[in-house]
Design a protein around this nucleic acid. Structure first.
Lengths: 358, 358
DNA sequence: CAAATAAATGTGCACGCACACAACTACTTA
DNA sequence: TAAGTAGTTGTGTGCGTGCACATTTATTTG
C-alpha cells in the first residue's frame, strides 16, 4: 500500500521532481505542455501529498492575529481564548505563531485600536469576532486590499467574503429554545425573552435568536396561544436593572419561562433566588461558571452551548488548513447546538473531554 | 521559536543522537549514569517530539483489526463503521491498515468465528465491541498472552484491563433521560422502561441506563411519586411483540413516558402511530434513520446520542496514538451525551459537521 | 549570427526522527 | 596477556517535501 510520491510522478512524466513541485504549487515557469502532462499523471495516480513531509520540509513561519474580547471583562471570552491557544499549541509544529489582540467587548474604540494593531503586525491571517458591525467594515476592506485572509467567528457577516465563518446558527438555537419551552409546558405559557447587556440594534445574532423562538411557535401552529414578551435590559445601572425586572414580573405574573439570549442567564437566576421566585424556568446560553452554578442549583433548566471553545479552535484551524496545508476549506462551519443540563454537563466542560469530540 | 531537536539534546549531553534515541524509546543498552543525565536534559529543555518527523522516519506497517456488528443486520453499526473507516483513512499516512471483521450482532457463534479470524490475522492491535460477555472472555485472555493490545467500545468490561475503553456512560445517560422526563412533566408520571431486542442479563449497559433513570428520581427525592414499569421485549416474534405492548399500555393507561434503552425507539413510535396513541412521549437512543424519521414526525421527543461514529473513530485513534506515536493514552474516554431534538438534529448528522466537534 | 536575456528544467540539501550497522570500551576467560 | 564477549556509544542513511541554486534550452536583440 505504498504511497505515491512526487518522485514517482516525476519518473513517470520523465521530468525532474522540481518541475512537478512547480506544477503542484503553481510556481510558474512550466511550459503548458509539460504542465498538462503532469497534471494528468497526478490525476491518474491520484497522488495525495504527505502532510507530514510537507510540514517538515518547509521552514516558513506563519503569523496569525486573533482579535477577541477580554475574558477579564466578560467571562464569555475565556473559552474562545482557550480554544485559540489550544489550536496555536498544536500548530506550532507547523511553524504557526498566533498573537492575541484583546479588546474591551463593550467599547468600540478599543476594538478599533486593537484591530489597527493587528493590522500593523502584518499577519498572514486574521481570526476575529466582529462584534461591532459599523466599526469593522473599514478593516474588512483594508484587509481585502492587503490580501490578508480573515476568518470570522461568533458573529456572521457574509457581505465581505471572509475566508470562513465559524459559529453558531443563532436562528436555529432559538428554535431549540422554543422546543424546550414547548416540551416543558404543553399548555400555552408566557415567555419572557431577555436581551441583557447588548444592544439588539448592533448585534444581529440576538434578534435572530428571538426570531428562531417565535418561528418555532409559528411553525408548530401555536403562536396564537403563546405570549412572548420582549425586554432589553442593561446591568450598567444595577438598581435600575432590578427595578425593570420587578416591573416585568409583577406586571406579568403569568410568565413561566425566561429565555436569555446572551450569556447572562445567571443574572436572572440570581434575581429569582433573591426574590424567591421558583416557578419560572430559565433557558440560557453558554457554559460560563456563573451559569453553571445556577444550572447545578436547578434555577437554570437548560443552557444551549454554542461551543465557544470550538469556535476559537476551529477558527485557527481554518487558517492553518488554508495557508499551511493549502487545503480547500468550507466557507461556513456551524458548530453543534448542544443542549446542556446538570446531568450531561460534565461531558461538555471537562477539558480532557474536549478532545473526544469529532 | 525553534523547536528542540534530539540533536540539541545530544549536543548538550555530549553524547550521540543514537544514545538519546535509546533513552527516549527505552531500547536499553544505556548506562544508568548517561540515561539519567539525558533524562534530566530532556526535562530541562522540555523537549517535545516532532510527530511528523517521527511518523516520516519509520516505515513500519501497523495492522489493526476491528470487530464490529453487521450494519446490514442492525443499522446501529453503520456509524461506528464509518468512524473506523474515517480514522483508518487518516492513519494510512502513518502506515496503519485496518481490517474489518464483521459479525452478526444477534449471534454469539458468529462473533466467536470472527474473533478467531481476527486473532489469526495476528494484528498489532484490536478494536472491538464486546457484545457477548461470556464469549469474549477467552479472547481477552488469549490476546493478553499474545500481547496484542485491545480497545473496547460500546460496552465496558474493565476486568481484563483493555488498553482503553471508549464509549458512553450508560448510567449517566439514564440520569439525563430522567431529567428530560421530569422537566417535561413536573407532576409525577408513570414511565415505561423498555428493553428491546437485547437480554439485560448479557448486556450490562441496559441495566445501567435503567439504574441511572431510577436514581435520578431518588436523588431528587421524587421516587415515591413516580412509577417506573419495566419491560423486556423482543421483536423476533412480531405478533407477540405487539401483544405484549397492548397488554402493557392497556393495563397501565397512566403511562406518559416511554424510555427505550436500545436503539429501537422507532418500534414503539411505529406502534403508537398505528394505535393512534399520541399522549405518551418517547425518549430513546441513537440517531439511526428509523429513529430520525419519528423524531421529525414528533413521535419521538428526544434521542440521546452516544456518538457511535466517534466511538469507532476514537477507538482506532487510541490504537494509533499508543502504537504509532507512543503517546500516553487515557484508559477511559467517555463521549458526550448529546440531547438531540428535531431542532438541533442537523448538527449531529451532517457528515461535514462531524469534523467540527472538538 | 553571436551575445544577451528570458524561460524552462535539473540538482542537491535540509527538515527531525528511527533504525541498522559500525566502532569502541570494559570485563571475562583460558 | 591476548582473545573473546557483553555492554555501550557513534555514524550514516532514508522517509517525502520544499526550496535555493545551478544548468540547460528557447527567445530576443543589435
Amino acid at each position: 500500500m505504498k504511497n505515491i510520491r512526487i518522485k514517482d510522478i516525476a519518473l513517470k512524466a520523465k521530468v525532474s521532481t522540481g518541475t512537478v513541485d512547480r506544477v503542484l504549487h503553481d510556481r510558474g515557469n512550466v511550459s503548458e505542455k509539460v504542465r498538462e502532462k503532469i497534471l494528468k499523471i497526478i490525476e491518474e495516480m491520484n497522488y495525495e501529498p504527505n502532510f507530514m513531509a510537507r510540514a517538515l520540509g518547509t521552514k516558513k513561519v506563519y503569523h496569525f492575529a486573533a482579535l477577541i474580547g477580554d475574558p477579564g471583562i466578560d467571562g464569555y471570552w475565556n473559552d474562545p481564548k482557550t480554544g485559540i491557544e489550544k489550536a496555536a499549541r498544536e500548530a506550532r509544529q507547523y511553524g504557526v505563531e498566533v498573537s492575541l489582540f484583546i479588546f474591551n467587548p463593550y467599547d468600540a474604540e478599543s476594538f478599533i485600536k486593537k484591530a489597527e494593531e493587528a493590522t500593523e503586525a502584518n499577519p498572514d491571517g486574521i481570526l476575529l469576532a466582529p462584534m461591532f458591525y459599523r466599526e469593522v467594515v473599514p478593516f474588512f476592506e483594508l484587509w481585502k486590499e492587503k490580501e490578508i485572509p480573515f476568518v470570522l467567528f461568533n458573529t456572521q457577516i457574509p457581505e465581505f467574503d471572509p475566508l470562513s465563518y465559524i459559529g453558531q446558527d443563532s436562528y436555529q438555537s432559538g428554535m431549540v429554545a422554543g422546543k424546550l419551552i414547548h416540551y416543558g409546558q404543553p399548555q400555552p405559557p408566557s415567555v419572557l425573552v431577555a436581551h441583557i447587556d447588548e444592544e439588539t440594534s448592533n448585534s444581529a445574532h440576538l434578534t435572530k435568536k428571538e426570531q428562531g423562538l417565535r418561528n418555532y411557535f409559528v411553525q408548530n401552529n401555536l403562536h396564537h396561544h403563546y405570549e412572548i414578551i420582549k425586554a432589553e435590559l442593561n446591568r450598567s445601572n444595577y438598581a435600575k436593572f432590578v427595578a425593570q425586572l420587578d416591573a416585568i414580573f409583577e406586571g406579568n405574573p403569568q410568565i413561566q419561562f425566561c429565555f436569555v439570549t446572551t450569556s447572562k442567564a445567571h443574572e436572572i437566576a440570581k434575581y429569582f433566588e433573591q426574590k424567591f421566585i421558583t416557578h419560572i424556568k430559565i433557558i440560557g446560553y453558554d457554559l460560563i461558571p456563573q451559569n453553571l452554578y445556577y444550572l447545578n442549583k436547578g434555577l437554570i433548566s437548560f443552557l444551549i452551548n454554542q461551543n465557544p471553545l470550538g469556535q476559537g479552535y476551529w477558527g485557527i484551524n481554518q487558517l492553518v488548513d488554508h495557508l499551511v496545508f493549502k487545503k480547500e476549506i468550507s466557507a461556513v462551519k456551524f458548530l453543534p447546538l448542544d443542549i446542556v443540563t446538570k446531568e450531561n454537563l460534565n461531558y461538555y466542560i471537562d477539558e480532557s473531554m474536549l478532545y473526544n469530540r469529532l
